Simulated scan of single mutants.
Amino acid sequence: MVLPTTGTVVSYPTGSTEGTGTVLHVEPVGERFAVLLDVTPCHPVDAGWPDQGADRATLTWNGGSAEVVDCVVAATDGSALHLGRDIPVRKGTEGWTFVVAHLVTEAPPVGIVVTVEVDEKYRKAISLGHTGCHLASLALNRAMAERWSKEVSLDALGSPNFDAEANDASRILERGSLDTYRLGKSLRKKGFRADGLGDDLPGIEDAVNGELDAWISEDAPVRIDCDGERLTDRRSWVCDLADGEARISCGGTHATRLGELKSLRATLTLDDVDGTPVLTMRTAQA
């Protein structure tokens, strides 16, 4: 068994949905096979921060084809391949190689060149959802700014970063997103004032949607800045708003302009979960 010693080259950050790659390794995983390519346009889910799921894609080669039933970040130290949550080290750990594993039920032979075709319609819907998620987090941070009594980290536009301090889970949906925020004791110790939030929630929601309307109307371009072409190279979502440049570390896929979001609505709800207030923000194109 020969495992790769260099990370997968990924083309999805630039918006690619089709490409070719050479099969470097094939490994049985239950009733499936993990196929490793040298290059891929297929976005994998990262177990460390699984907000954006895997692309839908197909591998085609001379004599066969297979649907990619899942696509995950994997890692190897040269002796074994570890998939997803089974990776025992942090991404970027010295001596480990991080790769994209395409899970299929029928595998191509090692050494052959395959064509990877990503479902463009689904990719587009998820990319819109991811860009909208970033924009909504900035709007929510701004709407929550007056509720902080202590200094905390600031977001890309200079507001107290409520999203970073309180986010419990984030999920990118087709043309939308779902985020939950725990408003527990640790957040209040950092200076966040949660009292009266339920009564103020309609006004906060209106403020978030007002910001979204204003920013989307600018139709500012969106780009992904990459430090390199490998899977583990740092990437950032960048949008030049009238309020300033917004730069957020992100490994996902995105729209190319804010105008593509059209009319994005955020809905806020507040619930009690085992004695802890939990704020939920759902975004969706109207």
Rank of each mutant, 00 (worst) to 15 (best):
A169I: 00
T93K: 15
E151S: 13
G84R: 06
A156R: 01
V35Q: 05
W237V: 00
P277Q: 11
E94N: 10
D179G: 06
T40H: 14
D199K: 13
A164W: 03
C226S: 14
L178F: 05
T180C: 07
A194L: 03
A286D: 12
I87Q: 08
A66R: 00
A57S: 09
A207C: 10
S159L: 04
A57K: 03
R85P: 15
S170W: 00
P13L: 02
A80H: 13
T76M: 08
D225A: 15
G84C: 03
A169H: 02
T283P: 01
M281P: 04
L103K: 09
L183G: 03
A284N: 02
L103C: 11
L264G: 04
D243Y: 06
G228D: 07
G15W: 10
N167A: 10
Y122A: 06
A143F: 08
C239K: 04
S79I: 01
A47R: 03
T276R: 03
D271K: 15
I224R: 00
G92A: 15
R188N: 12
T280G: 11
G275Y: 12
L197W: 09
T93G: 11
R175D: 13
T60W: 03
P50L: 11
A284G: 12
P108S: 10
V35F: 02
W215V: 00
G132S: 05
T22C: 06
E205S: 10
A156D: 01
G64H: 03
G7T: 12
Q52L: 15
R182F: 13
L212Y: 11
I224N: 00
A284M: 05
S16W: 02
V9R: 12
L83P: 12
I204C: 09
A214M: 13
E260D: 13
E151G: 05
T256I: 05
L212N: 14
I87H: 03
R147D: 01
W148H: 09
D225T: 15
S170R: 03
L154C: 02
G259P: 07
L187V: 04
D200K: 05
V26Y: 01
D51V: 14
G275A: 13
D272N: 13
K124N: 08
V68Y: 08
A34P: 05
T20D: 10
N141A: 07
N141S: 10
L279V: 00
V99M: 05
A136E: 00
F192S: 03
D46A: 13
P88N: 01
K185A: 07
V118Y: 11
C239S: 13
C226K: 13
R171A: 12
T253N: 06
E205H: 01
